[in-house]
Structures are given as structure tokens and as C-alpha cells.
Design a protein around this nucleic acid. Structure first.
Length: 935
RNA sequence: GGGCGAAUAGCUCAGCGGGAGAGCACCUGCCUUACAAGCAGGGGGUCGGAGGUUCGACACCUCCUUCGCCCACCA
């Protein structure tokens, strides 16, 4: 299967095109990424964070899935039965929005289609477009077990969701009730607390005068950011210990504009005496804190807004008692319009005392960024506290470990203060809640054709879409629709119109993907999974809920380790977003540089606990690394061919110092990379590979062997060199394969190898027998001496090609032995035709000298005048620079020039000045160095 | 208001009790037959500030400064 595809031309180097497609196809056909549940090998499992079906692969996905793939490929090579389950998420709101936008382009709304047709249409869309992200993951090289691909809304997952819902309901952990919830008027659905993003927003603080009902000359002044909600106020609160106001507690004030009478209550929790005036208007229907206070004081909730965030006619008239002229103006108006109208009226009638600038955090929908309204509504909730407690313990006692550990704090903070989870959504796309109502038993509580699902029934102009289920209705919860009402035996049943929060099905993912609620072999074999790889922004949305549900339904935490990776930002540290136009498209990168370069870059940048700044230049740098490796393979292959292909086994060859050094370094590399991966230090593994391959393997060892191959070295010496080169490269390819699967496979296939694919080759193990500390010391010394010799050569401006002579003055017999062993290498690397050494060597009459690890290195010069010549040359240059510098300095100190010359001319002179200073410093340095080396 | 994190070479960042490092950028010299997407060499940092612990601190502790981020119902 290893026929070489295109041999790249010398100038272009490694070209990933064709190679990546080829190996993807080969791997998939061979089924290497398929994990068999009957295999006796130890299990290692990851479930993918399912990307939205609406999604396109962005760098965040690329990072996330590269890291998962590195782990999976590495464990698979280590001999684990490695399972990576892929899948996608139905993404309720996001997907519904996409299809609604499509409809909009056709001039239609989802209401025109009706629920069933609309849902069919979404499924059709999913069939056509929902597979994009999976194809893109394949291009990245993700070695998922593709035949096990799941979807959060496919049939098995629907069963799991219904089962989980029913069991939670049976255990009293799911309930239906009327609560203040977060409502997105644009999506027209309830949201959970964490789906609301708070954003600091500039606004105003309005001071409004509320006259006492029985003493109109006296007023309480309240401060509010939302004057329009005063129409739904049901009290004014003051602090009971506030001497300014506590005498008013128990009396009433008259609401401006409507004249409705509301009580003054004392509340030490709600009221901060320092803020505003110390008197607060209380609007329980539209503010969470006010709602709490309302409960404490038995206040009514007047829900002033309808589902689209407009002033409701019904409420305005009946409940809020708004007078006719204002009524006409504000009914149907959106909040901001209503606010303007109310403020204008208040001002006209003298109730508006003052307005101050004020900024505060405003809640916005995480999907559409609309301002979210707190809103009383009947919804389904998960009672989270009983689920959270064991989930907290699982992390506390280390059954689940977060990496980096500090994310555990974030997790604890949220879990210990967890609120009930609103799981119902007023959408059409999603898992419809498995609850039914009997039209006979519940006929008073179910209103067909009477309004909308949020239970408000107050949008009179909008044709009702769904039955209204009043809070008092008695749901029949079952995993399948009952044939008839179990209570009365005959009533017709209708299903609850709401669907579940997308994250409900995601919470079941680690076991629903393995076939739960069936007791499958997959589950027994692979649950709990090993590692979860994700980013911090979904710790609450997903990680915490999976832990709760896993413990609840499986009795065991769903994973042992949670690796939280960095967020990918652009080169300036900004979050990438389409609107900012700073998005790096991983697919463009793959087209241009190859998936391997992208993957390696992401791994190299994935240091723990920090955001990642990604730029094209960075990726280009690692593309060079691909190329470097590719070329070293070209070199090796050529010489393998010259030697006739089959080499004797390594242990039958006699290896010299450099060979043993390479073997020893290689053992170190194996240890470093393996340890780094164990600790999720991807960047450390990547940079160890980079450093080793580029600088030790290519720059030093390959050059050493090259010298041997072009000289009259013995066949054994040549074979030993090539054999070690081959072994080093082959081993490195294994270590590198999880990072760069495509290129490593391609090279590996072209080299002599055993087995069908690098993807299923064994992970290297360090062999202590190859450790050779003495060889590492010797070659270390060789490197230093070589650098010193090259350095002296360049100081004397001796061209690289011209051979030199060297003498080394040692200081002990031990040094002599060390030096003796490396002389042949030094000669070739430093291009020295003759190297002498010894403890009693005289320093040559004229020489450049350097000191390396106690050894004096002499580069003799035939003609001592070279120093003088060089010195003179440098001095002349220095003189010229000094003159020029003086001229520029003078010019720059001329006030006339500075004030009259054009700005850019002055700037240019300044630049020149800086450059000259720089040049002078360098020349002085050179002269100083010349002083040091000449003798 | 609470919590978390960061400050190291011009830029982006590793390191985290005994050597201040990498990539890119910069300077010098090389088209040396694997690679100019390269090779050889080089310059450049009182590791944010102040104290403390220690034989020894860039690393550990305290405080300060400056930037991020997350959570939170000051109307």
C-alpha cells in the first residue's frame, strides 16, 4: 500500500496535497480507528464534545479535536483499545434560527408551515448540511470511530433522553412550575441562567417621585434604571432601620401616571441604604430580586410584557390600571419605546426628579444577543441540588481530576451555589418533553387555541400556536405516549408543546452514545470514559451536568480526567469572531500548509492555563519543520539506496561515539515525550520533538554521518551511521505521529518498515541499555569546541571552505582522552585539516584564542598582520560612522531644522541616528572581541 | 462585590529552588550536492515594583502596580 505518490521537486519540499486524502482513505478503509468492544486490550475512551450541526470547523474545534486525536492516537499506539466516539449536537436554538432565516428568505415564517412541517424541514436541512463539520474533522485527521457516529437527536439518543426525563421525574428531580425565568423576546423562549450573558451597558438612573396616598404633599423618591416597569410595581421598599423612611412602612404611595395604590414595605435584604435614594420600587414580575422580596411580603406579580417583549394590552388595562391616553401610546410598544413614553409623561407631570448616567450589567441572550427579560412563566425545571452534591464530592475526592487543577475552583464555585435548571424551551426543534395532558381530566387547565406555550396567553393579535397549559395542569410523564389517559381511561391526550434545552441531551452524552439505557457491551467496556477534552467556557453548560447525570444514571463519574485547554485567540489576543473579521479558518490553513502543520502548531501552543494567540506566521514556522523532516528523509532514503537497502541489525554493528550519542539522546526523547503526554503537556512534547529532530538529529548527527558517507570510512561505519539515522527517524516518526499523522505515515511507508501502518505501530519505549552519558558528555564537548572554532574562523574572516589548523591545550590526561575521541568529528565539522592537542603544547606565535571548558583553542595565523589589518579596517569603519553620527547629531540639535523641516524628514533623520548608534556599538564590540582573541 | 489568571529578549511565549531559554524579527558570513521554507555564527533581558523565606529566588510567601477573564439580583 506504500507506493510513493508524487515526489516533490527539490524546491518545493513537502507537499501535503494528495498525501492527506490518500492516507485518510486508507486508514478509514482499514478500520484502524475502530474499537472493538470484545478486544481484551485495556480500554481508553473519549467522547467528542459534539459540535453543532450548524457549525463549521473553527480554530477552537481544531484545537480541541487535535488534542483529542493526539491522545487517542498515542494511546492506540501504546496498545490500548482506544475508542473515540464522534457525533454532533442538534443545537436547538441555533439550528432553529438557521432554518427560520432560510424561511425568511422565502418570505415565510415557521408559523406558516406549522410545527410538523417545520420540524421535517429542519431534518431535511440537517440531512443536506449537517454533515459539514464531520467532513471537516476528517480533514483535520481526527481518528474517530466513525461507524459509531451519534447525533443528539437520533433515535437511540431520543430514547435515552425520554428515559432520563422520566426517571428524574419519578425521583422528584424534575418538576413543572411557575417561576421568574429569563426570557428571550427574540427567540421567544425561556433560557437557563447560564444562557444569559451579562454585559456592562451604559444607561441612566431615573429618580421618580411617588407621592404618599394619604399625604400627597410628601413623596418617596425612588431610583430605577427601568422606569417603564413602574407600571407593574406592586410596592416600594425601604430599609427598616433607615430613619429617613421607616415611618412610612405600612402606609401606601400612589403610583404616578396610573394612580394605583401600592404599599411601602420594609426589607433589609433588597434595600441598600447607600444606593440611590434608599427607596426601591418593587416589580416582582420583572426583576429577580424584586420577586424574592415580593414573596417575602406577599406581593402580586403584574407581568406587563408579552412574549415578544412588548407592553401587553391585557395587563396594561386590567392589572396595571393604566389610563387611556398612556395606554394608547404604549400598548404593543417595545421596552425601549415604552420607556421613552413613560419618562416623557413623568417629566410632563413633574414626577421625574432627575436623571443620572449609570452603567450596569444587562442580561443578553447567548444566542442572539437580545436583551433578556425576567418574566414569570410556567416551565419545567431540574432540581439540581441533590444532583450537585455527589458531583461535588466526585471532584473533591479525586475521582474526577481537572487539568489544570485550578479549574476545579470554578467548578466548585458554581456547583455549590447552583440554581434549579430551567430545561423547557418554547421551540419546535428539539426533544419534545415526554409529558401529556388529558383533555378531559384537565379540561379547565388546557386551553387549545387560546394562546402560546409560555402560558401567558396575552398576545392577542398573534394567532395562537400551541395549547396553553396552565400551571395547575397535571402532566402524565411517560417514556412513550400512553394510549389513553391512565386516570380517566378515556380522555384524549396532547403532548406538552415545549422541547428540552439542548444541553439536557448533551448531559447524557458519555453514556447515551454507548447505547444507554440498554446495558450494552460498549457501556461495560468503555464507561466511564478516560478523558474529557474541552475548553473552560462550557464547564457549567456541559461538564458539570455530565458529571451530575453520569453519577445519577450510571452510578459512576463519566470520565476520570477533564483536560481544559486554552481558548484560541488571534495574534492580538482578541477573541476570534466573524464580525471582527479576525478569524483564522482552519480549512484554509489546511489547504495552504497542511493539516500536520496546523496540528503541530496548535499542540505547540497548547501550554496549560493560558490563552493561545494564533497567527499565520506561527503556522508557517511549523510548516518549515515539516519540510525539514521531509528533507532529512530524502537524504536518508538516498543513502539507504546507495547502501543497497537491507542494513544489518543495529546490535550487530559497532557503533562509534556519535552513534551512541544519538541513540542515547533518542532514549531521552522517548521519555520526555511520553511523560509530557501523560501530564497533558502537549507543548512540552511538541517542543522536545522539534528541538531534537531539527537541532540534534539534523544539525549535528546527520552532518556527522554525512561526513562519514563522503569519506573513505569503512562499510561498517557507514552502515552504522545510516542504521542509526534510520532508527532515529523511524522512532521519531512514531513519537511524532499523534501530532502529524499524515506526513509521518507517508515517510514511514517509504522507509523500510514492519507492519501495515504507522497508525497502529507500537509506541516506542526507552531502552536503558542505550543510555550513554559518557557519549553525551563527549559530544557536548565536541559541540562547544566546534562552535568555538567556527567562531574564531568567522572573527578572522576565514571563508568557510578554507581548511584551518587547530591546536587544543588540555590540562589533564582525562581531557586528552576525551579530546582524542572527538578529534575526527571536530576536523570535519570545523573543517580543520589538522588538529593537535596535548597538555604541553605551546601557544603558536600568532593565533586567535578561545577558552572552552578549560581547554584553550588556538587558531594559528601565518601572518600576524591579519589582526592589524582587520583592526584597521574596523577602525576605519568606526571613524566613518563617528563622522556621520556627528553630522546627524548636529542636525538634530538644530532648533530651526526641528521646527521647520517636514515631520517625515525629521523622523528619517532620527531613524538614521539610531541606526548609526547601533552600528557604532557593534563595531566597538568587534574591536573588543578582536582584542580578546588575538595573541 | 467575590474569585481566577497574567506581567521573562523588539514581538509571541516556554521555564517555576541552583545554567535565563525557544520561535519569529534583527545583524554578519555562506547558493557547503537533504533542505535558501536552508546552513554557520552573532547581538539583545537588573525575569513589573517593594519587602521576606533560603547557603542560594525568575521561580516560594506577603504587599503594591498594571492588564485580562469568570461569577454576582446594588435598584
Amino acid at each position: 500500500m506504500s507506493e510513493p505518490r508524487m515526489l516533490p521537486s527539490k524546491k518545493t519540499g513537502y507537499n501535503p496535497q494528495g498525501i492527506e486524502e490518500h492516507w485518510s482513505a486508507v486508514w478509514e478503509q482499514a478500520g484502524y480507528s475502530h474499537a472493538d468492544e470484545s478486544s481484551p486490550k485495556p480500554a481508553y475512551a473519549i467522547v467528542i464534545p459534539p459540535p453543532n450541526i450548524t457549525g463549521f470547523l473553527h480554530v477552537g474545534h481544531a484545537m480541541n479535536n487535535t488534542l483529542q486525536d493526539i491522545l487517542i492516537r498515542w494511546r492506540r499506539m501504546q496498545g490500548y483499545n482506544a475508542l473515540w466516539i464522534p457525533g454532533t449536537d442538534h443545537a436547538g436554538i441555533a439550528t432553529q434560527n438557521v432554518v427560520e432565516r432560510q424561511l425568511q428568505e422565502e418570505g415565510r415564517r415557521r408559523e406558516d408551515l406549522g410545527r410538523d412541517e417545520f420540524v421535517k424541514r429542519v431534518w431535511r436541512w440537517r440531512g443536506e448540511s449537517g454533515g459539514t463539520i464531520i467532513r471537516q474533522l476528517k480533514r483535520l485527521g481526527a481518528s474517530c470511530d466513525w461507524v459509531r457516529e451519534c447525533f443528539t437527536m437520533d433515535e437511540p439518543r431520543q430514547r435515552a433522553v425520554r428515559e432520563a426525563f422520566v426517571r428524574l421525574h419519578e425521583d422528584g428531580l424534575i418538576y413543572r412550575g411557575e417561576r421568574l425565568i429569563n426570557w428571550c423576546p427574540r427567540c421567544r423562549t425561556a433560557l437557563s441562567d447560564i444562557e444569559v450573558e451579562h454585559e456592562e451597558t451604559k444607561g441612566f438612573l431615573y429618580y421618580i417621585s411617588y407621592p404618599l396616598a394619604d399625604e400627597p404633599a410628601t413623596s418617596l423618591i425612588v431610583a430605577t434604571t427601568r422606569p417603564e416597569t413602574m407600571l407593574a410595581d406592586t410596592a416600594v421598599a425601604v430599609h427598616p432601620d433607615d430613619p429617613r423612611y421607616n415611618r412610612f412602612i405600612g402606609r401606601c404611595v400612589k403610583l404616578p401616571l396610573t394612580g394605583r395604590t401600592i404599599p411601602v414595605v420594609g426589607d433589609s435584604i433588597l434595600v441598600d441604604r447607600e444606593f440611590g435614594t434608599g427607596a426601591v420600587k418593587v416589580t416582582p414580575a420583572h426583576d429577580f430580586r424584586d420577586d424574592e422580596a415580593g414573596k417575602r411580603h406577599g406581593l402580586d406579580r403584574i407581568a406587563l410584557l408579552d412574549e415578544e417583549g412588548r407592553i401587553s394590552a391585557y395587563v396594561a388595562k386590567r392589572e396595571a390600571q393604566i389610563d387611556d391616553s398612556l395606554f394608547d401610546e404604549i400598548v404593543g410598544a417595545e421596552v425601549t419605546e415604552a420607556r421613552k413614553a413613560v419618562v416623557r409623561r413623568l417629566r410632563e407631570r413633574g414626577f421625574l426628579v432627575k436623571v443620572e448616567d449609570h452603567s450596569h450589567a444587562l442580561g443578553k441572550c447567548y444566542r442572539c444577543k437580545s436583551v433578556v427579560e425576567p418574566f414569570p412563566s410556567t416551565q419545567w425545571f431540574v432540581k439540581t441540588q441533590p444532583l450537585a452534591e455527589p458531583a461535588i464530592r466526585a471532584v473533591e475526592d479525586g475521582r474526577i481530576r481537572f487539568v489544570p487543577k485550578h479549574w476545579e475552583n470554578t467548578y466548585f464555585a458554581w456547583m455549590r451555589n447552583i440554581k434549579d435548571w430551567c430545561i423547557s424551551r418554547q421551540l419546535w426543534w428539539g426533544h419534545q418533553i415526554p409529558a401529556w395532558y388529558c383533555l378531559r381530566c384537565d379540561r379547565d387547565n388546557v386551553v387549545i387555541g387560546g394562546g402560546t406555550s409560555a402560558g401567558l396567553g396575552i398576545v392577542e393579535e398573534v394567532k395562537p400556536l400551541e395549547p396553553i397549559i396552565l400551571p395547575e395542569a397535571q402532566p402524565i410523564v411517560a417514556s412513550e405516549q400512553p394510549g389513553a389517559c391512565p386516570r380517566c381511561g378515556g380522555g384524549k391526550l396532547i403532548q406538552d408543546p415545549d422541547v428540552l434545552d439542548t444541553w439536557f441531551s448533551s448531559a447524557l452524552w458519555p453514556f447515551s452514545t454507548m447505547g444507554w439505557p440498554e446495558q450494552t457491551r460498549l457501556l461495560t467496556r468503555f464507561y466511564p470514559t478516560s478523558t474529557l477534552v474541552t475548553s473552560f467556557d462550557i464547564i457549567f453548560f456541559w461538564v458539570a451536568r455530565m458529571i451530575m447525570m453520569g453519577l445519577k444514571f450510571m452510578g459512576e463519574a463519566p470520565f476520570r480526567e477533564v483536560y481544559i485547554h486554552a481558548l484560541v485567540r488571534d495574534a492580538e489576543g482578541q477573541k476570534m469572531s466573524k464580525s471582527k473579521g479576525n478569524v483564522i479558518d482552519p480549512l484554509e490553513i489546511i489547504d495552504k500548509y497542511g493539516a500536520d502543520a496546523l496540528r503541530f502548531t496548535l499542540a505547540a501552543l497548547a501550554a496549560q492555563g493560558r490563552d493561545v494567540r494564533l497567527s499565520a506566521e506561527r503556522i508557517e514556522g511549523y510548516r518549515h519543520f515539516c519540510n525539514k523532516l521531509w528533507n532529512s528523509h530524502q537524504f536518508l532514503s538516498r543513502h539507504l539506496a546507495v547502501l543497497g537497502g537491507a542494513l544489518p541489525p543495529l546490535n550487530s554493528l559497532s557503533l562509534d561515539l556519535a552513534d551512541r550519542w544519538m541513540m542515547s539522546r533518542l532514549q531521552g526523547l522517548i521519555g520526555t515525550v511520553t511523560d509530557a503526554l501523560e501530564g497533558y503537556r502537549f507543548n512540552e512534547a511538541a517542543s522536545a520533538l522539534y528541538q531534537f529532530l531539527w537541532h540534534e538529529y539534523c544539525d549535528w548527527y546527520l552532518e556527522i554521518v554525512k561526513a562519514r558517507l563522503t569519506s573513505s570510512a569503512s562499510r561498517n561505519q557507514q552502515e552504522a551511521g545510516v542504521a542509526v539515522l534510520l532508527h532515529g527517524l523511524e522512532t521519531s516518526l512514531r513519537l511524532l505521529h499523534p501530532f502529524m499523522p499524515f506526513m509521518t505515515e507517508e515517510i514511514w511507508q517509504q522507509l523500510p518498515h514492519q507492519g501495515n501502518s504507522l497508525m497502529v505501530a507500537d509506541w516506542p519505549e526507552a531502552d536503558p541499555a542505550w543510555r550513554a552519558p559518557e557519549a553525551e558528555d563527549s559530544i557536548g564537548l565536541l559541540m562547544e569546541l566546534t562552535r568555538a572554532a567556527r567562531d574564531l574562523r568567522s572573527d578572522l574572516e576565514i571563508p568557510p571552505q578554507r581548511p584551518i589548523r587547530l591546536t587544543l591545550r588540555t590540562s589533564s590526561g582525562e581531557e586528552d582522552r576525551l579530546v582524542d575521541a572527538i578529534i575526527p568529528y571536530l576536523s570535519s565539522l570545523a573543517r580543520a585539516e589538522k588538529v593537535m592537542y596535548g597538555q604541553h603544547l605551546d601557544r603558536p606565535p600568532a593565533a586567535a584564542v578561545a577558552l572552552v571548558a578549560g581547554i584553550e583553542v588556538h587558531l594559528p595565523v601565518d601572518d600576524p598582520s591579519v589582526f592589524a589589518t582587520r583592526q584597521q579596517k574596523l577602525r576605519r569603519e568606526l571613524e566613518k560612522v563617528e563622522q556621520e553620527l556627528a553630522r546627524v547629531t548636529k542636525k538634530l540639535s538644530n532648533a530651526d531644522f526641528l521646527s521647520k523641516a517636514p515631520e517625515e524628514v525629521v523622523a528619517k533623520e532620527r531613524e538614521g541616528h539610531a541606526r548609526l548608534l547601533d552600528a557604532r556599538a557593534k563595531l566597538l564590540q568587534h574591536l573588543e572581541r578582536l582584542d580578546q582573541i588575538m595573541h
